[in-house]
Nucleic acid binder design. Structure first.
Ligand SMILES: [Mn+2]
Ligand SMILES: [Mn+2]
Ligand SMILES: [Zn+2]
Ligand SMILES: [Zn+2]
Lengths: 143, 143
DNA sequence: CTTATCAATGAAAGTGATTTCCGATAGCAA
DNA sequence: TTGCTATCGGAAATCACTTTCATTGATAAG
């Protein structure tokens, strides 16, 4: 699955006539082997620990490429940091976010998805994305 | 209803020992008589047209006060601008946002709200807010 | 109706998170 | 191996707020 994403990204690189570079591979490895909801800075610092002179701008640009290639998606939990999560082919989920510790729980609910589609339909909108986030306190933080 | 909100805000001002100023009244009027989902800058520019030396910082601070007082709520549609919408006592709604022209349609769906509560419950989260936004193309933009 | 007091205001400076610029590097086609 | 450019990394620039500070003005006291 990690291999599949590497493959997808390499195909994307080739298709677009972009170059395969050491940095892109490092960043891809870092992204794929870390938490599913990392901010640019978190990934940058993690990579920086092993590769002292990788640039923030390169991490930033490469994450954008991951989004374009379809292996990542930008998310925004309202804490001022843009985060990126892994995208699995044909899968969709929404988020439960702990406002105390930042923990993120993913969930999928077919009934809600259907209701959303019906609402969009009834208002004549052609929906291409949606965002459903529940903010609260996680079980751990509730003690 | 517009009067009710003015009253609520004046009560808030009094309760907090804040001052009633010409600017706060102007901004309140501007906010109440405009679109329900304005960014700080949009409101600032609209006010500025009639009152050339009102400050951006004042609009900003006053909108925060509106939120505190309960007559407004901050929302974030992911376009990088914070928006403020009117709050009606005891009412809740979510949004359909046109990614072409920016049109916003409000909707409320009790079934979805119940499903959300059930999901939070099943994961042990104590939810205090949520965000549900459907992004797509509005009927007008679909032509 | 003054005056004194201190919150409120507006212009400008400061922040934090990107986003872009630019001279130096390094893939990769020839 | 070479030469052409895409990429890189560090720095500068942007953007959307957010705070600072000298001045102004709402209000309570006299
Ligand atoms: Mn996720
Ligand atoms: Mn609304
Ligand atoms: Zn938590
Ligand atoms: Zn539209």
């Amino acid at each position: 699955m990690k291999q599949a994403k590497k493959q997808l990204f390499h195909d994307f690189i080739a298709r677009k006539g972009l170059k395969s570079t050491r940095q892109r591979d490092l960043i891809l490895d870092g992204f794929l082997s870390n938490d599913r909801h990392m901010s640019i800075e978190e990934l940058y610092l993690a990579l920086r620990a092993k590769h002292p002179n990788i640039g923030y701008a390169t991490v930033y640009r490469t994450l954008k490429l991951f989004s374009e290639s379809g292996i990542a998606r930008e998310i925004q939990f309202g804490d001022g940091q843009t985060r990126f999560e892994h995208v699995d082919e044909g899968e969709h989920h929404d988020h439960l976010v702990c406002t105390r510790c930042g923990a993120v729980k993913e969930f999928a609910n077919e009934a809600i998805e259907k209701l959303q589609a019906a609402i969009a339909e009834s208002h004549g909108y052609l929906v291409h994305t949606h965002k459903l986030e529940l903010y609260g306190i996680c079980p751990k933080c509730r003690k």
